[in-house]
């Protein structure tokens, strides 16, 4: 296996499994992608393991979600990595959010708004159309790093986007019965997804991103959900099941467990598999 091709591979470190999968698709055999997250972590809570440091130290490219998604672990890891090439602002620091206008940008950068979404909501990758922007950003970075492989990268990108486009049409078709359907979730993961597929996002169990709910907030949420007949409670497996299942029970809504990045639940190892899973699970949750 370890031939000259192996040696010449571009070493990519991706923060989360979604951008890792997209990079694998654009880079193909020319890249070796390692993801800091395995998929089951919270997108804002990947543990800072010393084992990540040598990976980052040798990386040719760092691919991240951006909008501060990785703020809790990436800055310290980057400092310790002692790799000047992948530091913030360098060409090999690939922020996939480039070119995306964020939703829910806080009116003030103040801790009264919690701390995990200071630059707006970073969970844009749950909208497959915006994932295409990420793909393009990754492709640009790979071409800039290895222009000699431009043709391959562009071909991979086009192949992947074609597959993704075909999937998007299918997902939109499948999600038609959920047009206007309301749902709540634990963390504010789903505004881009809801906008894309015409669902109505009715709030989060968390008080603010990264701040646990108060009993009063839960009470108010239950009352509002009952009044509005909200049929779905989305539960991300990173968060405790107790409160979401209590709310679902009290309101009669269906509890749906959804991954927030590839690998979050079994059989969602790629981005396309994950989106398939999410669409299937939601479609299965509403009564026909």
């Amino acid at each position: 296996m370890a031939g000259p091709v192996e040696a010449a591979r571009i070493r990519v470190v991706a923060t989360l499994t979604d951008v890792a999968d997209l990079t694998r698709n654009v880079g193909g055999d020319l890249v070796e992608v390692q993801s800091l997250a395995t998929g089951i972590e919270d997108t804002h809570g990947v543990p800072m393991k010393p084992g990540f440091i040598p990976l980052l130290n040798r990386a040719d490219l760092l691919v991240l979600v951006g909008f501060g998604c990785e703020h809790a672990f990436l800055p310290a890891l980057l400092e310790a990595s002692k790799n000047p090439r992948i530091q913030y602002g360098k060409p090999a620091y690939v922020d996939c959010s480039r070119g995306i206008s964020p939703l829910e940008v806080p009116r003030s950068t103040d801790h009264s708004e919690g701390d995990v979404h200071p630059y707006g909501n970073p969970h844009y990758l749950l909208d497959p159309v915006l994932a295409k922007v990420a793909v393009q950003n990754i492709c640009n970075a790979l071409v800039a790093l290895a222009p000699e492989h431009q043709v391959e990268f562009l071909r991979h990108r086009d192949d992947y986007l074609a597959r993704l486009d075909a999937k998007i049409i299918g997902w939109q078709e499948a999600m038609k019965p959920l047009q206007g359907a309301q749902f709540v979730s634990y963390h504010e993961h789903w505004p881009y997804f809801a906008a894309r597929f015409g669902m109505k996002y009715s709030g989060t169990i968390e008080l603010k991103p990264g701040i646990d709910p108060t009993p009063r907030h839960i009470e108010q949420m239950i009352a509002a959900m009952k009044a509005e007949h909200v049929p779905i409670v989305v539960r991300e497996p990173q968060f405790p099941e107790k409160v979401p299942s209590l709310i679902a029970k009290q309101t009669g809504a269906t509890l749906v467990k959804l991954p927030i990045m590839p690998g979050g639940v079994p059989h969602t190892e790629t981005y396309l598999d994950m989106m398939d899973y999410i669409v299937r699970a939601l479609v299965g949750a509403v009564p026909k």
Partner: peptide, 19 residues
């Protein structure tokens, strides 16, 4: 994409789709 837009919900609701 143009085909999708004709399928998709009102663009105002999507908020963030520069492409």
């Amino acid at each position: 994409l143009t085909k999708q837009i004709t399928h998709a919900p009102a663009p105002a609701a999507t908020g963030a789709s520069p492409i």
